[in-house]
Design a binder for these strands. Structure first.
Lengths: 150, 150
DNA sequence: ATGTAATCTGCAATGAATTTGCATTTACAT
DNA sequence: ATGTAAATGCAAATTCATTGCAGATTACAT
């Protein structure tokens, strides 16, 4: 039984390692621990969450871990309410469409963010069982009107 | 001609004033100037933009102006990349649906953010002429699975 | 017009979040 | 095993945002 658990545990460990390698990241204790935690939690985590969980690592190291993960495509940043962004593991999410509140366009070239007026209803995003939507932020990145015509 | 311009200008001024009144905000120089600037720019502005433009006002006043505008529904906050949110004038935007990249659900009750996997294609958002989308952030707020079943 | 109460502004100080520089340690390709 | 490039920890510096308070300004009723 213990053997079994250990076996599973080792598997996970090697998977984590492989995951780091796949993203061209060196294997370090901090990165392994943080990645494992993301895997276990299955939800987006904030810097605070990590800081609390991993007091054995320096704040700066955790910041840099998040940055390296983001840079190498292991994590993506989710824009947060008030400047305190949270991070979630990248995986393929299929989505539908829906009702909405805001719709913004941010130009990759000039950096301008505009509120886009499109006089059309957005189809309904189908959420999983038991989820209820109150409101929604849609941010589209790309090339704007102006930058595209140059 | 000058008279004409002045007339137009006055109209705008009174409109701005009315807009503030409609949102139950007192008429002050700072608010008038900031609101006017938003009207003119027709795009989302960051705090930095305002700070640069209105050096005659104290930073704190500008922060408070943005907050009061947001609180009274004159502006809405658009979550930004790296904690530096930008603000845009509220107006009715109609939208369609589309292709996607990320889709996140943030629970209003427990605060948890999850990456939602919905195995469905997102319809295509129809952007205005000359806009090209490279990627997209969808953040849905509401009540999650877990909190909803209590 | 004028007085009063409520609120806004500027300033200074505080507090929180994030980044940088540098010396030391660690990972990993040879 | 060993050298090089990269990661870590610590201290300090930056940046970003909020708070308290005194004086100025606004809305409103008289």
């Amino acid at each position: 039984m213990n053997l079994h658990l250990h076996y599973i545990c080792n598997m996970k460990y090697s998977e984590l390692k492989q995951s780091l390698k796949n993203h061209k990241l060196r294997i370090t204790d901090c990165r392994m621990d943080v990645l494992e935690y993301f895997q276990q939690q299955k939800k987006a985590l904030s810097f605070r969450d990590l800081e609390y969980k991993f007091q054995e690592y320096d704040r700066v190291t955790l910041y840099r871990t998040l940055h390296s993960f983001e840079e190498n495509g292991l994590l993506h940043k989710i824009p947060g309410d008030s400047g305190s962004a949270v991070y979630g593991l990248c995986n393929d999410c299929g989505v539908e469409a829906h009702h909405h509140n805001h719709m913004h366009f941010k130009c990759d070239t000039c950096g301008t963010t505009e509120c886009i007026d499109v006089p059309v209803e957005i189809p309904t995003i189908s959420l999983p069982k038991n989820y209820k939507m109150t409101d929604m932020d849609v941010i589209v990145n790309g090339i704007c009107n102006h930058c595209n015509s140059n």
